[in-house]
């Protein structure tokens, strides 16, 4: 455990201590949270600010394909798009990463060919997380060994909802250790809470704290596989958590909303949330990401509109 976390050293000593700590966190004012998120979504971002926001959003995308039907060809196409999102405009920034299943990491690595795009891999029996610990560890080690720069793990929502907080904490710790490579460096760990399955905002706050205490590099809203994914409100709540965590420990943790963000307008709303909640320190792809696939096309069409003055259409971006 890092020395800066000594303030919280005693809260993870036992299940009851962790429960006492998590249940001692202030309750979330649900109405206030949603109103705050909604009011920040009304900002009008135009012209040069919009152009900046679009490029920033593109550079923050974890371009994702997580389908049972993923083929090596699709992963190669996705990787090519990540490196060169708009072939008609070479000034378009690269995306932050491609996000694939562990068995596709090697394919993505070959396709990216050393380009400055990270490879994120989901692991730990994504998306359900219903597997035994050795399976989850093997899943993670496979992905890291294949060359993943980042691991997106899911927590065991069953254990969390049953109140076994320490088990959830230990799982993240264990996976974090499995992210360490042979040379001593480590893949960055993103912890997915699947906020749509946690039922309450209080639970999202508690899960965020478990993730941060356990050493997550990123906390991530959802898998994109359930009905409710990233919303402005739950992302705002997680941003407040990382803000409070840094204020108390000095450790900065990233946030990644994923799923359901499809339009430029939505993406810009999230960027406003980031800027207004945690500030410019988080406005880079090292600390904030979008888990998305179709969002990139909308950003590219808006970018084309800004650069040419003409509304663009789906014929002018790739079909993924």
């Amino acid at each position: 455990m890092p020395t800066t976390l000594t303030a919280f050293a005693d809260v993870t000593t036992s299940d009851s201590a962790l429960r006492r700590f998590l249940h001692g966190l202030p309750g979330v004012d649900a109405v206030g949270l949603e109103a705050r998120a909604a009011s920040l979504g009304t900002r009008s971002i135009k012209t040069t600010a919009k152009a900046y926001a679009i490029d920033l959003a593109i550079s923050m995308i974890d371009l994702t394909t997580l389908e049972g039907a993923d083929t090596p060809g699709k992963v190669r196409a996705l990787s090519a798009k990540a490196v060169n999102p708009d072939p008609t405009d070479r000034t378009t920034p690269m995306t932050a990463a491609v996000c694939v299943y562990p068995d596709m990491v090697a394919t993505a690595k070959a396709a990216l060919n050393g380009a400055d795009v990270k490879i994120a891999s989901v692991a730990t029996a994504f998306p359900a997380g219903r597997a035994a610990l050795p399976v989850k560890l093997a899943d993670t080690r496979d992905a890291v060994a294949a060359g993943a720069d980042e691991i997106d793990m899911v927590i065991d929502r069953g254990a969390f909802l049953a109140g076994r907080y320490l088990e959830t904490y230990e799982l993240i710790r264990t996976i974090k250790e499995a992210c360490v490579r042979e040379d001593g460096s480590a893949a960055r760990l993103k912890v997915i809470f699947e906020t749509g399955e946690l039922s309450t905002y209080d639970n999202i706050r508690r899960a965020s704290w478990i993730g941060m205490l356990a050493g997550a590099d990123f906390i991530k809203t959802s898998t994109g596989k359930v009905g409710v994914n990233a919303t402005p409100a739950n992302t705002l709540l997680m941003l407040e958590a990382v803000r409070d965590f840094r204020a108390q420990t000095g450790i900065q943790i990233g946030v990644k909303p994923a799923g359901g963000i499809r339009t430029t307008k939505d993406a810009i709303k999230f960027l406003v949330l980031v800027n207004e909640t945690v500030g410019e320190d988080w406005l880079s792809n090292h600390w904030f990401r979008f888990g998305a696939s179709s969002l990139l096309n909308d950003l590219l069409m808006q970018r084309q509109k800004l650069s040419t003055g003409r509304y663009s259409g789906p014929d002018y971006v790739t079909v993924d």
């Binding site: 084309q304 509304y311 259409g313 789906p314």
Partner: peptide, 9 residues
């Protein structure tokens, strides 16, 4: 003018 120059019309 915006509809005439619209790439998806």
């Amino acid at each position: 003018p915006h509809l005439a120059s619209h790439q998806d019309v």
